[in-house]
Design a protein around this nucleic acid. Structure first.
Lengths: 217, 217, 217, 217
DNA sequence: AATGAATGAGCCTTCATTCAT
DNA sequence: GATGAATGAAGGCTCATTCAT
């Protein structure tokens, strides 16, 4: 009875794996079908064509790794919420072990966006960014322009992205083993949070003039 | 006598342009040859195959855009040097107009590294990072572990990279027009420098315990 | 009880329509099934394969449009009978509105005969031709050889066929609107009958020597 | 030195043969290439795709079998000219032996026109029809409407077409051997000319009222 | 009697590459 | 040193058909 969607699921799983490893162009439908142990016509039957199969993989990936609604207790400090969000982002981005291709595929999509990028950003990135922007805004003077607040939020996000996107560079820069020690949520989170708090505080000083209560020492 | 390398040069230029726009896989040797106005067999003759043509393009790209030896006057403050380095990196990354494909190709290579990445990092990225690391180290307590100093430098670099690599995301997050206003060196540099100075200072506090003279006020 | 043949009938109707519009090769079983609103396996179940479905369509077509037994009153003149037959043929061939695909499919089959052609000619064309040959024979001298009489009958039939088979040519030759005015039974019939009577009379003169009573005057 | 177009020519010849025998849809590029002894990619190289190869075949066919400018002596009677034109058309249409596929392909194209039909009619059919219309017009009263004259010309053409297009029907109607005896230009031409002269004369009588000098006895 | 998922052969096309000249 | 025709492998896709239910 579960059999009906078996092929479809198998196809998505195998395709996701191959797509995430080799990219859309380089992946051939033949190898996907072979990996899934199904006939080559199955892709057309279930998805229409290669592109829609890819889209389905991306959708499937972010469905399983969507953004949780942060449900923090009343009175949680901005600083704590920032910490939790950074930790959350890093947890997701540094996950190398278990969920395998889903994350990698999303990352790849974000690095070189195709049509599938929009939905990914809207449903996966945007919610996080919105909340992050809210938290950052609380730590900045009320009169800080929107653009400046957005820039500040970007500065936080950017630090997380580096450990996902720019691993090859990082490995080449500081050595593979040294870099490997960084692929650890706690280590990285602590540093990024500290750096970001300092950064936000400095920005607050620039935009606010007076010492801002939230971000202030 | 210039004729000899004429075809070769034309080929590199055109190929670089197409590669940077469409990526390695999607680019066909036919369109490259057509754009260059040369025979299709010329690629094989001059470069052997498509891959080696690509490599040559990447090499050529970073040759023209290598890292300048920063030659600042004695006594330039760490802060000023940080400002100059961030500005330099952003200048390079935000350059959309003149240098055309060379930069874009390098960026593409760094996002999804091929064999050409190593040489690129070694000759192009590493020197910048080394100097940046030196500056950051000056601003941190002497006892800060190497890994922590590297992380801090990463935090600075990461902010710059975002405006090159993650434009599509940025555009989707805050709107295309709003994001467009950020593709301006001065605007971005000022924010990143401020944020980074604050961040470094905060890191210094964590690692140093006592107020650190360099990063202090 | 009607249900049993419902699918089968629906299939023949829809298939006939598509076959007549696009031809055998170009038609796919999928679009036929979709048009009929039945499962794709139904064709195999009811007809075995695509070819036998096509055959069934052709059979079905000529069943509904077979040749009527002309039942004219005694003493009807050859000329009148010729007129009636030409009118009948044209009526059938120029019918664009009602009987829809059946005729078109038969015409298509006659233009590029497949295996289905034989039965079509035998049951549909031959009876008409036999009667036409009889009428023509009456108008020719008794000593006219069979082949010559057959040729003469062909000359009559040929004129009718043109308005069915060679429409595209006709349209290109004299203009689409001008040709459209010819797709009218009365207009065409009057001309063809007149031309044919003259033609037969001339043939009679050649084969008979003396003036032939029937075709004379 | 002739080698350059060798493959191209071979391809057109073989493709024409196969297309004429099996039609566009049923023909595969593989069998064409195999027949021509060339690589399968040659079609793409020389013609772009299957459709343009087909077009080239049609063009090539009618180039070799275009309409000759009839160059009759002054004072040639309408009747003689009609005879020559009918003979010419039949000669072309009954040619079964030598020119092989070219004619067959054109016929196929005219029976089920594709995009290639227009050019075929314009360059190949139209000139013949124009001259035929002129001759017929001379034999009809001056006041005969254009449409009637065109119809009359159609009646002449139609008789010729039958022996090309409707062979299968003809064979089934009067027997294969009997019909075979008709695939002879002289036999058929004599009958068609006689029939047509009689037909035109009759039409002239209808439209002109008075006896027309040309078509008159 | 009917479904819909699955099959495998084969379609046209396109690619990077290499051969003769 | 350069050409352009030719190559063969593989690409994505579509087809009529059949299997298991």
């Amino acid at each position: 009875m579960f059999e009906v969607d078996d092929t479809r699921q198998k196809l998505i799983n195998c395709a996701g794996e191959v797509f995430s490893a080799k990219g859309f162009e380089t992946t051939t439908v033949r190898e996907v079908c072979q990996a899934a142990g199904v006939n080559i016509a199955a892709i057309h039957y279930h998805f229409g064509d290669k592109e829609r199969l890819y889209l389905e993989c991306v959708k499937h990936a972010h469905c399983q790794h969507g953004m949780p609604e942060f449900d923090w207790p009343n009175g949680t400090s901005s600083q704590d919420r920032l910490t939790m969000m950074v930790t959350h982002m890093l947890t997701m981005m540094l996950a190398t072990d278990q969920p395998a291709w889903q994350i990698e595929l999303m990352m790849r999509e974000l690095a070189r966006p195709t049509a599938a990028c929009r939905v990914l950003v809207e449903e996966f990135i945007s919610p996080v960014f919105t909340q992050l922007l809210a938290v950052v805004s609380e730590m900045l003077p009320a009169e800080t322009p929107l653009l400046a607040r957005q820039q500040t939020a970007f500065s936080v996000v950017a630090q997380c992205l580096l450990y996902r996107y720019h691993r090859p560079i990082g490995q080449l820069l500081i050595g593979q083993e040294q870099f490997q020690r960084l692929l650890n949520v706690d280590t990285v989170a602590r540093q990024i949070v500290a750096f970001s708090l300092g950064g936000i505080r400095e920005c607050a000083r620039q935009y606010g003039g007076s010492a801002d209560k939230e971000a202030g020492a």
